[in-house]
Amino acid sequence: MKKMVLIALSLVSVSAFAAGYGSSGCGLGSMLIEKDNTWWKQVLAATTNGISGNQTFGISSGTLNCDSPTPGKTAQVEAYIEANRMALANDIARGNGETISGLSKVYGCENTADFGKALKNNYRTIFPTAEVTTNTMASEITNVASGVCSTNL
């Protein structure tokens, strides 16, 4: 657990001190955050850091891979799919949801409901295994989108 925090911290500080937002493309990355409910850590957190609203044990680290230059649309889609992987699996399995609306905008889909339905029907090609790569997911989703949306990707 300590290791996790250290990784998160090093990533956060690297990205944060990288000369403002200028160089930050903000790419892929899993969220390395530790939530620890051990009571004594809570007490300590409460007495030192509580008011900050910035949890000791809930460090945010969204801006990973920020040294990549302004990414193209494909990279953006992949970053989105990677970060939202779990939520996307839920929404696609259900045929509706916010992450689908987001994709819909990226692909310029007129009809989000149809897009959602089509994604649901193709669930097994988009998520063939638990370990499917982001790249595969992205290209399968693009395939679905090209059938339903007037995509310009």
Binding site: A16, M31, K35, S60, Y80, A83
Partner: peptide, 19 residues
């Protein structure tokens, strides 16, 4: 303390799902 900009979905995944 520093300011950072990041796609909102990272924050949603962090706060809504993870925490």
């Amino acid at each position: 303390g520093t300011f950072t900009a990041m796609p909102f979905y990272y924050k949603v995944r962090e706060y809504n799902d993870f925490e």
